[in-house]
Amino acid sequence: MTSRQTPAIVLQIRDYGEADRLVNFLTPDGGRVSGIAKHAKKSKRRFANCLEPLNRVIFQLSPRPRGDLEFIQQGELVNPFSHLRRDLRRLAAGAVLAELAGELSAPVEATGSIFQTLNQALELLDGGGAPDSLLPAFFLHLLKLGGYGPRWRDCRQCGREPAPPLYFSISKGGVVCSSCRNAAAGPMLPLTPGVWKLLRLAQDLPPEKLHRLRFPPSQRDQSLALLQKFSRHHLGRDLKSWSFWEKMTRG
């Protein structure tokens, strides 16, 4: 049976029977993959410190004769992003981005960019980057890579350049001008010009420049509320890690 090596970012671990573990991870070539790590609870050498959420690792995989799960033969830790564990806001931001990246494992041609972008975001957060700015900027960027990028330049209803007061149409996935507000169906959120500009910029910038963006608290809150509602509508559910982010940033 042929085995292959792949870089991976671990997303989720679950116990599977007495000794095995079921691992969900993101790869550059295959997007989100599920694998079974046999005897992982007992084998400290084959999986030394590897099987932890958000770890960047190299997995040795072999396909199973039947079923979708791969066998994870062994793993090697590349980066545990260990500073995140001592800063809960950064950890929460990393968790939201990792969960989103896992949800956006299709289309196949984007999985490499999604993996690299998540890795970049985790490195920046681990290096002390501001989670308040990195979270909305990278969230939007990941949405774009996954094919869900909102349209900011022209009104989704009339196609003209929008003038304030602006609105964001959740279902149409873009900005709507005030005169089209009533004609556009579905839920609508008010959008301040400052947030509009910031989100437009965040979506256009390459990921290596996203750390330069600064989201002041009010613009961060409005941006995150918009992105949360938008992703809930299009993914069909709320990301579980949003609630952890909210709990860690409350008060």
């Binding site: 959420p53 929460a92 949003w242 609630s243 709990k247």
Partner: peptide, 11 residues
């Protein structure tokens, strides 16, 4: 334990 990816918080 707190679990960010499972949404388990202090409450």
């Amino acid at each position: 334990l707190l679990s960010p990816l499972e949404g388990v918080g202090p409450d």
